[in-house]
Amino acid sequence: MTSAPAPTLRDLSQRFAQAGRVEAILLRPARRAPMLRVDRADAIAERGLQGDRSAARAAGRLAGKARHVTLIQAEHLAAIAALCGRGSVGAELPRRNLVVSGLNLLAARSLFREAPLVLRIGDAVQLEITGPCEPCSRMEEALGVGGYNAMRGHGGVTARVLVGGLLRVGDRVRCETTAAPLLG
């Protein structure tokens, strides 16, 4: 009796235990403006979310850019709160566009260029994770002394909108392999 070969790192990096869920959608209408929590938003390919300041910029300036949308894991909000000595941290404080639960967003960035991964949200939207979303100095204002360091490693990820469409709170978030390397 022969056993199946052990999975490779390539195989393992494409396996996820479950789908995630969109817990919150937040828009930044202008720099330093309060976040707006919405139940739905239109993702615009190569731009960002309608109503967010990143999508409002001239389309030509954003083409190929890596930061159309920012995402954070809901599970990291509790870690940030603990590291700041707070009881909780609301979804608005880290200033990310999408709060996702149940899926390791850091693992949704492909380790292999020839085997890209995409986040498929709801029926149509596809995002490419482009890197970590490092905290800014505003986290000290929002979270208090040490807020910047509490966010380091827990700040979420940045993403490009590959395919636009409607996003809703409650949408399923799946990490999938793509057939061809992504552009950029």
Rank of each mutant, 00 (worst) to 15 (best):
M1G: 13
S3D: 04
A4N: 09
R10Y: 01
L12V: 03
S13A: 12
R15F: 00
F16L: 00
F16C: 06
A17F: 09
A17M: 05
Q18K: 13
R21K: 11
A24V: 11
L27E: 14
R28M: 11
P29F: 06
A30D: 14
A33I: 01
A33V: 05
R37N: 02
R40L: 01
D42V: 09
A43G: 10
E46H: 09
Q50V: 04
D52H: 14
R53N: 06
S54G: 04
S54Y: 00
A55L: 03
A56V: 06
R57W: 06
A58H: 15
A59F: 08
R61A: 11
L62I: 02
A63Q: 09
G64F: 01
K65E: 09
K65G: 15
A66S: 05
L71N: 02
H76N: 12
H76P: 04
I80W: 05
A81N: 08
A81M: 07
A82C: 03
C84I: 07
G85P: 04
G85A: 12
S88V: 03
V89W: 07
G90C: 14
E92H: 12
R96C: 03
R96A: 08
N97D: 03
L98P: 02
V99M: 08
V99N: 02
V100R: 00
L103H: 01
N104H: 10
L105D: 05
L105Y: 00
A108T: 11
A108F: 06
S110Y: 04
F112S: 04
R113L: 13
A115K: 04
P116H: 10
V118S: 05
V118M: 04
L119Y: 04
R120S: 02
G122R: 07
G122W: 02
D123E: 14
D123G: 12
A124Y: 08
A124E: 08
A124W: 07
A124R: 15
Q126I: 02
Q126P: 01
E128K: 09
I129L: 13
T130M: 09
T130Y: 08
G131W: 00
P135M: 01
C136G: 04
R138T: 15
R138M: 14
R138I: 09
E140A: 10
L143V: 12
V145I: 15
G146M: 14
G147S: 11
Y148E: 01
N149H: 12
M151Y: 07
R152V: 15
R152W: 01
R152S: 09
H154L: 13
H154A: 06
G155R: 05
T158D: 02
A159L: 07
R160P: 03
V161P: 01
L162I: 10
L167G: 03
V169I: 11
V169A: 05
D171E: 13
D171Q: 06
R172D: 12
V173S: 07
V173G: 01
R174D: 15
C175R: 02
T178D: 06
P181Y: 02
P181T: 09
L182T: 00
L182I: 13
